[in-house]
Amino acid sequence: MATEEVDPRFADLDAWSLTSAMEAMWEGQLAAVAAIGHALPAITAATEAAKAALGDPGRIVYVGAGTSGRVAVQDGAELTPTFAWPNERVCFIVAGGDSAFVTSIEGAEDDVDDAVAQINAARLTSHDVVIAVAASGTTPFTVAALQQAGSFGAVTIGVANNRGTALLASAKFPILIETGRELIAGSTRMKAGTAQKVVLNLISSGIMLRLGRVYRSMMVNMPPSNAKLKRRAEAMVVQIAHCDPSQAARSLEQAEGDIKTAALLALGVNRADAQTVLNNCNGNLRRVFDELAENRDSNRDRHSKEVTARNQDGAVEP
């Protein structure tokens, strides 16, 4: 596996000046990000399948061991504060359990039985999306978990940094990111880990885009849970509704912090109608504005026809 091999270019890395070593490691990070470009079609296909499967009950399930598991946890933990993705709809299957989030439990990655047990306990369905990450692509825990998830009909996505590996073969949507040899051989927290985090960023953010949790590049589902986020929420309402900050603040208070509802209130839509149209459009604000525009156009056309009919009947002077 390339990620485990010593790169001859860096065989004497420990003898280099720190400046030269830093430059080499930085260049390695850039190369890791560049390697993702070839996988964009696979990443996009996986994201589309994930969005289609999730519906209302589906969960995003992250699977990994060691560094890859912790990278996965980092991505999943941000879904609730950024997109208001419900906590109960994100799940972590990590070798060694919760304690492995902050502590290295290296032997746990070989525990196939635990992987199967954790997947079974999750009670997966075809609405769930399982994203398994392993730099080597061969980690027994991660491969077994993904294979077991597939038996439940879940959408399975495998992210690995080595070609022709079991994880990729086991995934319905394999994503290969060939980052090659690490500057420090086998230290996949470096190039491989960076690439994994970027891929997970793309998948999770892409899902939220497609689910309407982003509008005009703004995180409009964000819960304003502290002073900074409250100011950010008010700024979003100002930008969406083109209102002044004080009106945005009032609308947010009336909407109990819901940014999309507050924007509609600031635009003059009453609370009941705002809730109805948001429900009809599954919370997708772009679709809401399209529907409101269609209703306005329809009402305008109907009014015009009524006026024309009255004129023709002589009820109104031309």
Rank of each mutant, 00 (worst) to 15 (best):
G97I: 02
V159L: 00
P318G: 12
V112L: 09
K230E: 15
S151N: 10
L265V: 02
S68K: 09
R216P: 13
N299V: 11
L124P: 03
V129R: 01
R210S: 06
P318S: 14
P57K: 00
Q148F: 02
P8H: 04
M222G: 08
D301K: 14
H303T: 11
N279R: 08
Y62D: 00
V90S: 10
E317W: 13
V143C: 01
L209I: 11
V63K: 04
E234F: 02
G164R: 03
Q148P: 05
D110N: 10
T308S: 15
L211V: 13
P318Q: 13
R213I: 07
V198Q: 08
L176A: 05
K260P: 05
W26S: 08
V102F: 12
A117I: 03
G153Q: 00
P8M: 06
A39C: 05
R210C: 05
Q254E: 11
L292Q: 12
M1V: 09
G283A: 08
R9C: 13
G186S: 03
S17R: 10
D111A: 09
A108K: 02
S187R: 09
Q74M: 15
A72H: 02
M1S: 09
N120Y: 03
G212D: 14
P224S: 02
R70A: 03
F83E: 00
A117Y: 03
L278E: 13
T44N: 09
I184A: 06
Q74L: 15
A255R: 01
V73F: 15
R310Q: 03
E23N: 03
E109N: 01
F141W: 08
Q196H: 03
A132W: 02
I119L: 05
W16D: 14
Q148Y: 03
V61Q: 02
R302Q: 10
L18T: 14
G193I: 03
E291M: 14
E178R: 00
N162T: 03
E48Q: 11
A149S: 09
W26R: 10
S205A: 12
D114C: 12
A241R: 06
L124Q: 07
T103C: 00
P81H: 04
F101R: 14
E291P: 04
E48S: 06
G212N: 08
T19F: 13
